[in-house]
C-alpha cells in the first residue's frame, strides 16, 4: 500500500514562505492560522551568523499521537498514509492539539477574515468546497497533504505528484525545489533514493511517531 510523504531540503530552503502562502490559498486557511509554518531563527554570533528556516506542516505520522488522544475517534489515517480530521465527529476538545509534538493541529475559530465585508474567497459556499475544506467553528483542522488534489487521481490508478494538478500546493510553488512529494513505500520513487542519499532525518524521533515528512539537513 502506498504511503505518501514529503522530503524537505533545508539546505535549499530560502525562507520565502511561498509554501505557506500557497497552503493558505489552496486550503482556505483563515488569517492567523497556519497549516504550514516556516520557523526561522538565527544561529551563531557576528560575524559567523546564519539564519535557519524550517518549514513545518503535519508530519502525517505512521504512529500519530493525535489518533489515540482523540476521545471520539475523529482522526483517522487513510490507506495512503494521510492523517485526516472528520469535522463532523470532532468535538473541539483540543486533546489532539495537546498531544501532537509538532504542533500541527489548530482550531478553526471562524469569524471575519477582514473587517467589514466578506472576501470573495469566503463567499464560496461550503457545499462548493471539497469536504476537507468544510471547516466547522471550534473544531480541529490541519494539513491534509493536499489530499483533495491527488486523492481522486490515485483512486484512478494515477501516480500522484507526476502532474501539477495532483501535486500538493506547497511542493508546486517552491522556487528553490526544496520540497519533494512521493510514495515512501515505492522503492523506485525518487523521493526514497534522495532520502537515502542525503541521509534525511525525521523530526523528534524520540516520540516514536515515525513522521512521513523527512528533512535534509546537510548540503
Amino acid at each position: 500500500m502506498a504511503k505518501y510523504g514529503l522530503l524537505i531540503d533545508l539546505s535549499r530552503c530560502i525562507g520565502c514562505r511561498a509554501c505557506e502562502a500557497a497552503c493558505k490559498v489552496e486550503n482556505f486557511v483563515p488569517p492567523g492560522k497556519y497549516w504550514l509554518y516556516v520557523l526561522e531563527w538565527e544561529m551563531g554570533e557576528y560575524p559567523n551568523v546564519k539564519r535557519v528556516f524550517v518549514p513545518m506542516n503535519c508530519m502525517h505520522c505512521e504512529n500519530p499521537a493525535c489518533i489515540p488522544a482523540c476521545p471520539v475517534n475523529a482522526i483517522t489515517k487513510n490507506e495512503y498514509g494521510v492523517v485526516l480530521v472528520d469535522y463532523n465527529k470532532c468535538i473541539g476538545c483540543k486533546y489532539c492539539v495537546a498531544a501532537c509534538p509538532y504542533g500541527a493541529i489548530d482550531i478553526y475559530e471562524g469569524g471575519e477574515w477582514f473587517p467589514g465585508s466578506k472576501t470573495p474567497y469566503e463567499l464560496i459556499p461550503p457545499e462548493k468546497r471539497h469536504p476537507l475544506h468544510r471547516f466547522q467553528k471550534g473544531k480541529a483542522f490541519k494539513c491534509t497533504l493536499c489530499y483533495h488534489r491527488w486523492g481522486e487521481a490515485v483512486e484512478r490508478g494515477e501516480k500522484p505528484g507526476t502532474r501539477p494538478e495532483t501535486t500538493p500546493a506547497c511542493v508546486l510553488v517552491c522556487p528553490a525545489g526544496a520540497r519533494m512529494f512521493g510514495d515512501l513505500e515505492d522503492p523506485s520513487d525518487p523521493i526514497n533514493s534522495r532520502i537515502a542519499e542525503k541521509r534525511a532525518i525525521q523530526l523528534k524521533k524520540e516520540f516514536g511517531t515515525r513522521p512521513q515528512v523527512y528533512y535534509i539537513t546537510t548540503g
Binding site: A65, P68, A98, A99, C100, P101, E206, F207, G208, R210
Partner: peptide
C-alpha cells in the same frame, strides 16, 4: 509546554494512556 514532558508518562509501557510509540 514542551511535549517532552508528556512523553515521560504517555510513551509505550508508560504509566499513562499511550500516545507515543516510543
Amino acid at each position: 509546554v514542551d511535549r517532552g514532558v508528556c512523553l515521560g508518562c504517555h510513551r509505550s509501557n508508560g504509566v499513562a494512556h499511550e500516545l507515543y510509540k516510543a
